[in-house]
Structure formats: structure tokens, C-alpha cells
Design a protein around this nucleic acid. Structure first.
Lengths: 232, 232
DNA sequence: TGTACATCAGTGAACGCGCGTTCACTGATGTAC
DNA sequence: TGTACATCAGTGAACGCGCGTTCACTGATGTAC
């Protein structure tokens, strides 16, 4: 019964884990587009067709990797946020930004899979949407709480948002930033992509031969972007 | 003599052009990693080996595409800058940012080649460095001229840069931003990657199902990032 | 506890593709006298 | 202007690889009575 059934199921779960682990490692050498089911099967000592028992299709493996990646990043962000006093909103922002960067530096190819160029021929299914939101939801919570606490200094931070931005702002507010007015939402939608711009530039080589003190530069950039939303 | 010699050379130049044109088109369906010399040769009605007369190696084709891409983007940015009165520094910033975005939207796969995930196994040779600077050099010029004209309002724009940032700032100043003090260089190094973060988010699907008014949002973001350097 | 049956994992062969690069070669174009 | 030679473009065959996916199959594991 359930013990015996678990025996088979446990092996299956373990193999699923091992496949994605090898796949993650192979991303580094082959890239997402070059990821090969056959190569993974070979590395596992399996015959090439056996892998389809676990991932019927190459795209299914991608989907699993993407979902895992978003969750891993989201978890790192949640942990980083939890380590900072709730009322230190600027500190929380810096902490989660740093967590994203550190995760990206530690897992550059997974980061590229999530935030780099899309894989040609692959369309992410709906199942990837919810995990994708996990990290940005933490950011939204920080902004919400800071605003509710009256801790945002928006005196000079940004120009007023355009009038036709209301519907988009409402969507964002509803999803991850309850109670926050349009202009703050707009600022947040500059700061958050700004974080990923900074990381992508660093990771994809745009700072090569120019920027050496990358930690310092990053912290400073994040402080600037934080001020833009009123975090100081 | 030179007329006859040009006959052959003109055919060669034309074929080189045609090959890169097909390659650019194929980027859309195959992605950079999937770009195939054989497929290009096929499309040109050539035998597959003939293409090596033009690009000895697949990597040589990549290099050509990257250099062409940086130049095309750089030219678009230069043209956009030229259309705005020299003293309207904030307007020039918005114009070049918009030019980058429009070029990216019109050539998403070339943009991905330049600013997306690196192609596995390909290392960009030194010949790509100079063209890569062309667009950011225009940005640097705008900042330099604005600063020299006393047009930057840095009163509240950003926190002071970290002390160990001096050497990096000096390198940037020397290369593209003559005469500009460290704190403004630091701000510029937040705004510029911020621009690419905004574009990559839009292009790589992070705004899907959320942001509809993308032009408005982009303009607003750029205004915020501009203020961060003191452009207003 | 033992037996009959159903489920599932992994095998091995095959289908039908694709790729980059090399090499000896033919024939056209260009050059020098 | 004409001839001899050198350069170059394109051919076709080959080398040695790779891939995703399907399918009939064996044999082990799990389930129900």
C-alpha cells in the first residue's frame, strides 16, 4: 500500500529532481536553446527515450526549469526581506535588490532563462505566471507597507504619472501593491525594471572593461532607484 | 583594372550584405543560438560550403551581426539627438531613450543579440567594443554638455556616490563624459542601465497581462530616470 | 499470506531530420606583360 | 589588343557529429481480492 507506492513514487521524484539538476548545470555550457534531452539522458546513464517518461517534451522541461527558477528567486527575496526590521523600508528594498543580484550572480544561466532573451520556439504556459510574481510581490508589499506607514517621501521623487496610466496602475495595485496611489505605482514600475537593468548589464558584459567596484555601484544605484519611489 | 576589379568586389560586397540580411531575418525564428550557416546558404541558393568564402566561421557571422547592430542602434540614437535643440538636455535624453526603445521594438532579435543573454560558446572579439560604445557616447555627450551649461539640477537627485567609486567614474568620464563630477557619473550609471531594464522588461514579456499603456509608461520612466541625473 | 492482474519504467531500434567544416575540383574573372 | 598566369567563387562529396520523438517490447513494482 502507501509505503510500497511511495517507494516507486519516491524514485520518480528523485529522478525528476536529478533531471532538472543536470539540466540546470547544462544550461551553463549549452544555453537554453541548446539544452538537449538526449545529453541529459546520457549523463544519467539512461537510454535517450526513457527521459520522455519524466518530461514528455523538451518544452515541459523548460517550463519546469522556469517555474523552479522563479520560486528559487522568490524564496531568496522573501528570506532577505524577512531579515530586515519591518519599518526599515529602505533597508528592505536594498536587501531584496541585493538578494536578486546575488541569486543572479550565483545562477547566471537560470537568471538568463527568466529575464534574458526568450528561447525561440518556446512559449511559456500559464503555469509560469504565478511563480513569476513571487519576487515582485515582496517588492510590492514593501511599498504598500511603507506608504501605509506614511514613510514614503514623495516630495521631489518623481514627475506625476500620465493620465492614461490609471488602468495599468490599478491592475498593479490590485495584484501586489494594495492601497498605493498611482504616482507611487508609477515610480515602482521604474525602480523594479531598473534593478534588472543593472543586473543584466553586469551579468551580460556591458560593464566589462569599465566598472570594477560593482558592489558599490550596485548599492548606489539601488539607493537612487529607491529614492525615486520615496524610500530614503 | 579598377573597374573590372570592382565588378567582382561589388558582387562580393552585395553577397556579404545579403547574407547578413538573411541572417538578421532568421534570428527571429531560430534565435542566435540556432542560427545556421547551412540554412542561410540554402536560402541563397548556394551550396552550403560556399558560404565559408564569406564568413569562414559561424562566429565571424555573429561578430558581423553584432557590429552592424551596434552601429545601427548608434546611428538611430545620433539621429534622434540631432533633432532636438542643443540646450534642451532633458528633451535630448528623452529623444535618445525613445530611439533606443523604438529600434529595439523594430529589431527585437538584434536587440536580444546585443543586450540579451550571451550566445553560449561565443566570445565577442575586441572589434565589437568600439561600436558598442557608439550609443552610450551620445548619452555621455548630453550629460557633459548639460553639466558644462550648468543645466543639471542635482540638488535632490541622488545620494552621494561611494568613495571607492572614483576610479570607475574616472574611466567613464575619460571615455564618454568629459568634465562631469563623480556623483553625476554615478547617476548616469543608474539611468542608462535603467533604460535597458525598461526595454528588456517590455520586450521579453515581463509586462505581459499587466501594462497596456506602454508608451506612456516608458516616457514617465525616462523622465524619472532623467531627473535622477538632474535632467529636468 | 498468495495469487492474478494492472500499472509503470526503461530498452533498443528506428524515422527523419539537422549541423559546421574540410577538401580537391572546375571554371570564371582579373592582372601583367 | 592578345596571351599566360594568378586569383577567386562556387561545386559536390564526405566526415563525424548531433537532435526530438515514436513504438513495440520486457520485466519489475504495486494493487485488489
Amino acid at each position: 500500500m502507501s509505503v510500497a507506492r511511495t517507494a516507486r513514487e519516491r524514485v520518480r521524484a528523485e529522478l525528476l529532481r536529478e533531471i532538472t539538476e543536470i539540466a540546470r548545470r547544462r544550461l551553463a555550457t549549452d544555453g537554453a536553446a541548446g539544452l538537449s534531452l538526449r545529453a541529459i539522458a546520457r549523463e544519467m546513464g539512461m537510454v535517450s527515450s526513457a527521459i520522455h517518461r519524466y518530461f514528455p517534451t523538451r518544452d515541459d522541461l523548460f517550463t519546469a526549469l522556469i517555474i523552479d527558477g522563479y520560486h528559487a528567486l522568490g524564496e531568496a527575496v522573501e528570506r532577505a526581506d524577512a531579515d530586515v526590521p519591518r519599518t526599515d523600508h529602505a533597508g528592505r528594498w536594498l536587501a531584496i535588490a541585493t538578494a536578486v543580484r546575488e541569486w543572479a550572480l550565483a545562477h547566471p544561466h537560470e537568471y538568463a532563462l527568466l529575464y534574458g532573451s526568450p528561447v525561440p520556439g518556446y512559449r511559456a504556459p500559464a503555469a509560469t505566471i504565478a511563480p513569476a510574481i513571487r519576487s515582485v510581490a515582496v517588492f510590492g508589499r514593501i511599498i504598500s507597507e511603507a506608504y501605509a506607514a506614511g514613510a514614503l517621501d514623495t516630495s521631489d521623487s518623481c514627475v506625476p504619472p500620465p493620465v492614461d496610466f490609471g488602468a495599468d496602475a490599478a491592475r498593479v495595485r490590485e495584484a501586489i501593491m494594495p492601497g498605493v496611489p498611482d504616482d507611487v505605482v508609477a515610480g515602482a514600475l521604474t525602480a523594479w525594471p531598473g534593478l534588472f537593468g543593472a543586473i543584466s548589464f553586469e551579468l551580460f558584459g556591458q560593464f566589462e572593461n569599465t566598472i570594477v567596484e560593482r558592489d558599490a555601484r550596485f548599492r548606489h544605484s539601488m539607493a537612487c532607484l529607491g529614492r525615486l519611489v520615496g524610500l530614503r
